[in-house]
Amino acid sequence: MVHQYRNNGYNIVLDVDSGSVHVVDDLVYDVIAFLKDDLSKADDAVTARFAGRYSPEEVSEALEEIRALEKNHQLFSRDIYRDAVLDFRNHPTVVKALCLHVAHDCNLACRYCFAQEGEYHGVRALMSYETGKAALDYLVSHSGNRRNLEVDFFGGEPLMNFEVVRKLTAYGRELEKMHDKHFRFTLTTNGVLLDENIMDFCNREMDNVVLSLDGRKEIHDKMRPSRNGKGSYDLIVPKFQKFAKQRKELGKQYYVRGTFTHYNLDFARDVLHFADLGFDQISIEPVVAPADAPYAIRPEDLGTIKEQYDLLAQEMIRREKEGRGFTFFHFMIDLTGGPCVYKRLSGCGSGTEYLAVTPWGDLYPCHQFVGNEEFLLGNVTEGVKRSDLVSIFKSCNVYARKECRDCFARYYCSGGCAANSWNFHQRIDSVYEIGCELERKRVESALMIKAALAD
């Protein structure tokens, strides 16, 4: 399968099933478009088709290069992975990542929060150290021969239970020595309780910190007020700037991560606002909300959002060439050391490799399913009781979704989010169409940036 498009003056040809990305001139672009529906077309037919536009010599030259790529399986390649990936998914499941909900409570009242002010449709609760220990023990004992394990401290707001975070991290370091494992700890915070002591701790122990910020002050404060209705921008931004600067100097990862909604469809300005504040690892993504929510992204918003991605991509190229570039998470594509095809086609691992743990130790397929009793898998002391659900999640890969079969982005998005699929279609093996449309645009933008920076 071949996907070709023009963007920002570049002709880009993506050979979907090999992952090869080619930047081509108009001649090759036109010839590939003519050939791709019927590869058996004779060279004479191609030459005749372009008579008057390109000389026979030019067409012959283009065909020679195209055939060389085809012979090298870099163009017009086919999907040869299905059997191998399905066999791979039949191997015994190991758990390698936990999302630890150390607090089902929050000191903000974000309007779009899927966790309903951190409480996940339930009651306020903090995870005890004992429950957290049992969760880490569960992870280690179910991780098989996987050495790299991940634990994300999540909420609600995890800093409302910081002492447990600190103690669980220390316990994890003990487990590393005992079992020859490596923990990658991460933490997501709204910044309200962030202080010097917590920053120092995170700089020592957290491989990544996700700092929640939505953009310009008026945007952030509209969507992320405190429980008394006051905005939180002025309180958290100076702390985030200091934290990010420290982590940059230490070579540690962080992300400033926001959500854009129908209220700020000009979100490229929010991304650039972050960059102008000094942040260089940035993520802003579209809200996923019930269609009738006033802040939800609507189908008629898609054109505006795509224009914003174009504007953002062009500005990122300009800043990169000026030596003041930044990383935008949703334009990240690694063309030289990207993940293997098993990873790409298997998806995020929710319900199998990745589980969420509630403050009282219940297991769910991921944080988005927490609070939905239909998806309660078991608990950390007795393990997974719903192996039927695990089997469903295990078979939920790109090949399970008919919508992905003809989509050029399937090796980049991995089939999308099971929770989004459930929320919109009451099944986990479908897709969220607005999300798909925007993912395709982001892939196109990301590849165009690669082309521009390769000039």
Binding site: G19, S20, V21, H22, D25, S77, A97, Y354
Partner: peptide
Amino acid sequence: MKHIKTLNTRSLQESMKKGGCGECQTSCQ
């Protein structure tokens, strides 16, 4: 090549032969 510039070096076919160890990071995105 005169008309085509290929940007990447690692093919998915190659990763089928060598990949699948499961040691990489999970990512819900």
